[in-house]
Design a binder for these strands. Sequence first.
DNA 1: CCGAAGATTGCCT
DNA 2: GGCAATCTTCGGG
Length: 234
Amino acid sequence: MSPGPAGRPAKRLARAFFNRPALQVAPELLGCVLWHDTPEGRVAAEIVEVEAYAGHTDPASHAFRGRTARNAVMFGPPGHAYVYFTYGMHFCVNLVCAHDGPSAVLLRAGRITEGAALAGRRRAAGRDVVVPERNLARGPATLCQALDIDLALDGADVCTDSPLQVGRPADWTAPPAGGISAGPRVGISQAQDRPWRFWLTGERHVSAYKAAKPRRAAAKPVAARGRRDGTMHR
DNA sequence: CCGAAGATTGCCT
DNA sequence: GGCAATCTTCGGG
């Protein structure tokens, strides 16, 4: 038993919990609590929305095309955090599942249960705004910002002592009282038909669904490409 | 080496 | 609803 967030004792999830297919683990993470201890304090969140990503059989998975420097953690043992950087400014966090995948569960949204003031400061990030409680961790990148999760935690073992922990509250039940919903994953352009996104039905902290929309290619500059010396060509 | 897309977010119209 | 921001990663030539 590890000390969970104040007022809501949580038992740390064992490695065996993660040593299963992501599709099986994903819905069971709903209602569990993720927390990150930093010098500033602790921020904890109840997980309300997740997505499962399989390995070789899932074109939407980062691991689909094999191991690279970025996704290396997904190819390692279960129970570790796979954190990646995307869109030039955002982080997303996954929990690695069964080794024979590789597979992982993306944590998409949470309800802050401890450290809301700190989370709010991080989310405001210098802007002169007050982030509504509902939006503190409503989306994979905002969840990471609220909990200060970045590449320093890539590979962190959440099943042993690490600043990042995941626990199951003492009052956790499966299925949750309100039920679980499933639907297509957000923001992907491959395998959009697989209903591998899971969320707590009716939970207000679940992110708003946005279908993947291909971005128009950036307009090419009028100046010719491939010539930096001003040479014109036709 | 270069180009294009990306498991997104937030501001603007 | 459209799209800019911002840069890493990856695949193709």
